[in-house]
Amino acid sequence: MQRATMDLWVGLFVIAGVGALLILALKVGNLGTYNEAKSYTLVGNFENIGGLKIRAPVKSAGVVVGRVTDIQFSMKSFDAAVTMNMDNRYQFPKDTFASILTSGLLGEQYVGLAAGGDEGMLKSGDKIMKTNSALVLEDMIGRFLFDKASENSDGDGEDDSRL
């Protein structure tokens, strides 16, 4: 085979390979939608994070606006300090409310942000003051059973008084 034809084919091969890598990065991966270089960090302290994991999305109004980058146990306040990497395009007021929510009944957990009405915006490194813990199913069931039990005992008491 001619040298030039071979060069042409190899060139096409390399271009196709690099193109495939680019498609993987931009269309399949999250490099196109979310740029870590243009981001700022926020910290939120939660009493209980439930099953929140690193790399979980941070959403506001259902739109992904950032990602959880770090979860540490804070020895100062004995709760979980969640570090979030936020997209620079999205700024939030200082009194933004952060809560840990679950997508669907069995879905993954994420941090939901609800914007407040403050004039000042959160800057990089700022702490979100208002947080709401994850709902832990065991606690809920426990509370439910406790309520039921106390209801029943109240009912018994009434019956007793009637007698």
């Binding site: 091969f13 390979g17 890598l21 993987l24």
Partner: peptide
């Protein structure tokens, strides 16, 4: 050189 390029093509075609 060609192995990573081929694997990237494979994944892209798969998607």
């Amino acid at each position: 050189i060609s192995m990573p390029l081929l694997a990237a093509m494979f994944s892209t075609m798969g998607v």
